[in-house]
Every structure is written in structure tokens, then in C-alpha cells.
Design a binder for these strands. Sequence first.
DNA 1: ACCTGAACACCGTTCAAGT
DNA 2: ACCTGAACACCGTTCAAGT
Lengths: 214, 214
Amino acid sequence: MDRPAAEAERPAYHHGDLRRTLFDAAIALIEEQQNWDFSLRELARRAGVSHNAPYSHFASKSELLAALATAGFEMLSEVMAQAAAAAPGPDAAYTAVGEAYVRFGRAHPGHYRLMFRSASISMDNSATEPLMRAAHAAKRVMSNVVLEGARAGVFAIDPEDQAAIELAVLGCWSSGHGLTMLFLDKMLGEVSASQPERVISKIVRAELEGLRRR
Amino acid sequence: MDRPAAEAERPAYHHGDLRRTLFDAAIALIEEQQNWDFSLRELARRAGVSHNAPYSHFASKSELLAALATAGFEMLSEVMAQAAAAAPGPDAAYTAVGEAYVRFGRAHPGHYRLMFRSASISMDNSATEPLMRAAHAAKRVMSNVVLEGARAGVFAIDPEDQAAIELAVLGCWSSGHGLTMLFLDKMLGEVSASQPERVISKIVRAELEGLRRR
DNA sequence: ACCTGAACACCGTTCAAGT
DNA sequence: ACCTGAACACCGTTCAAGT
């Protein structure tokens, strides 16, 4: 009665895929509660195992969180890369990536927040390196979109000027990240909140104009 | 020995200004740890009172956090208003406010994060209304700067078009908030992180160009 | 290798009681 | 009105033990 039904299908002692089960349950909890304040004991309860079983798969709560954040950045990279690949040119690629980015954040509020928070939290455990790599890879996808536009002569940036590219990417990222966070934190007035797609589209396009005229 | 020295100066039982003491100690803890995971009991220990004394002044931890966030938005409003008032015109006002905004966030990382997080957390307690008012007031300061520029004809926006003003403010806010958060979350590459002032200035000015040419 | 159960040192919050 | 102390139902983490 105090064990989830799904557990009945699994062997009683050796779970088989507890790591994945915990991982998925953690994501579910994070999205339900919009934060990562869930307890490891609650997580174990949901997975139908003892409160200590998680420690067989994750050294600590913060290491689990870092692993979740890493997976989040990988998902985001994938989403952005697909948006870019499907676009016919630099302008379309930029808007598609920008809109996909904000859409991802709004679709996974707790997870998105965790991704950014945990990069500055878990500066100690072994899960940090893959996290940083995943975050860097995501940024790389954005950089490539800007770089393509610069090389094509569509954006007014010298593709060889690394500092200029870096700055342009940071500007776009700031705009998209800020907009996403303001949405998640319910900081938008009714006007903007009632037409999210329109607002997102306009702000992404305004940033694109900045790239073209820089 | 387990009580802070400052406590010796105060009356033993009735503290006198415990609310303020707790408030200040909470801010200190938040800035030390870059989060608000401190325990109410630790807070009470720092103030030299029993672990329940805080409940005489705050209904719960989340109400204390909401009060802190409210004060944070008031500080931010003040900082922005002063930056705007000291500027000779709309362009200078915009860059001064933008740079002051990011500087505030970087100077108070834990507090800044809390301000934005608690607006979406404490949707239940009585401290929510003042919080929302303070957040709205801060946004108002930004809006006024954009509105002034529009009225002066310096920014390419119709000052009577409320939706356009709203959108322009949201764009600027997203950019500044995103940049601030990326800084706090250590998401910037070495290049940007090593010259923060320069990067901030460039990104604020790029956003200003967007306003002028809109 | 993977999991359990008892144990430790914590929490937030409540409640009855003191000043 | 403001504060204390005991109590309750939790935590994360460790450790010895089971399968």
C-alpha cells in the first residue's frame, strides 16, 4: 500500500534499473514542485526502495542534482541543434534556436532552473566536470549559429574576431536566458504573460536585428 | 561561548530589536552562502536567542524570505532611480540604469537571486502583496527611463503605445537580468568573466542601440 | 554489487509555559 | 508582547549488516 504499483513488476531485492528510476522520479518531483527541495527519502519512497538505496547510485543529493543538470544541458543542446539544422539560413536558424531555447525553459521550469543553479552549486563533487562540459556544449550550439551568420555575411560581425563573436553570443544568451527566467519567475505583466509566443518571437527578432546591424 | 559577543550588550530577555537583528543576520547568511538554505535555528543562534524567537517576528521561514526579497526590490529601485536622476539625458540614463542594475545583482548575488525566486515561491503568505508591489515599483523605474527616451524622441518608440513600451522594457530587462544571472551562475567564459565591466557596458549599449533604432 | 535498518545530528513548526 | 523549552515529524548521511 505504501509502495507504488510499478514496483510489483520488479524483483524484490535487486531492482535492476534503480538509477534510471531514481533519475526519472527526481525529474518528475522537480517539475511538480518547481524546485529541488524534494528529499532523498521521498525519492526513495517513490521508487519503492529503502531510504538509503539512492546512495548506491549517487554519492549525495548534490551529485544527483548535478547529473540531472548535465542531462538537462544535453537535452537543450539537442533541441537547439535540431532547430538550427531545420532552418534554411542564418536568420531563420537564429530565430528558430532562440524560440526553441525559451520554449525548452518554459516546458521544463524546474529542470531549467536547476541546470543553471547547479553549475555554481556543485563546485566540489565529481559530477561537476561532465556538467561543465554539457553546459559548454550547449553554448557552442549557440555560438555556431552566430558564427554561420557571420561567415555568410548576414550578421555584421567579423567571423575571425573571436571576442566579437563571444560578445554577440553572450548578448543573445543573456536576452534569451533573462526572458526565460522572467517567465519562470512570474515576473511578466498580464499583457506579456497572456501572449507568450508573440512576446518571445518579438524579443528574439529584436536581438536578431542587433546582430544584423552590429 | 556559544553565544555571539554582541549579545552581551543587549538585555537578556526582551531583545529590543530582534526583528531587525534577524533580518540583517539573514542577509549576511544569504550573501555568505549564496543561497537561502540557512536554517532558522542557525539564524536564531547567530542572534543569540532561542530557536523559536524568530517566530515572534516572522510567521515562517518563507515569510522572512519574502520580507527580505521585498527589501531587495526596494534597494534596487533606489539604486536605479538615483542612476537615472544623475544622468543628463535619456541615453545616459539608460546606460547608467542598466549598469547600476547589473552592478547591484553582482554585489548582492544571494539577495538578488532570492528577489526573483521568491516572487514565484511565496504565492500564499501575507508577505506576498508588498513583495509584488516592490517588484512592480522596480520595473516602473525602468519603464520611466524608456518612456522618457520615447517622449524625448531619442528612442524610436511611440510613447503613447503602451504595448510597444512594455515590450521594449521587457527586452531591456531580459537582457540585463539574463546577463546578471549568467554572471552569478558562473556561466561566463574566462574572456567575459575577466573583464566584467567592459562586457556589461557593451551589452547595455547594444540594447540601447536597439531602442534608438526600433 | 546492491540494498536494508538502526543510528546521529540536524531541521521547521507547534504548543504550553514563563517574564 | 515577546521569548523559552519540550515535543513532533521530518531530514541527509554514515555504518554495519544482509542477499
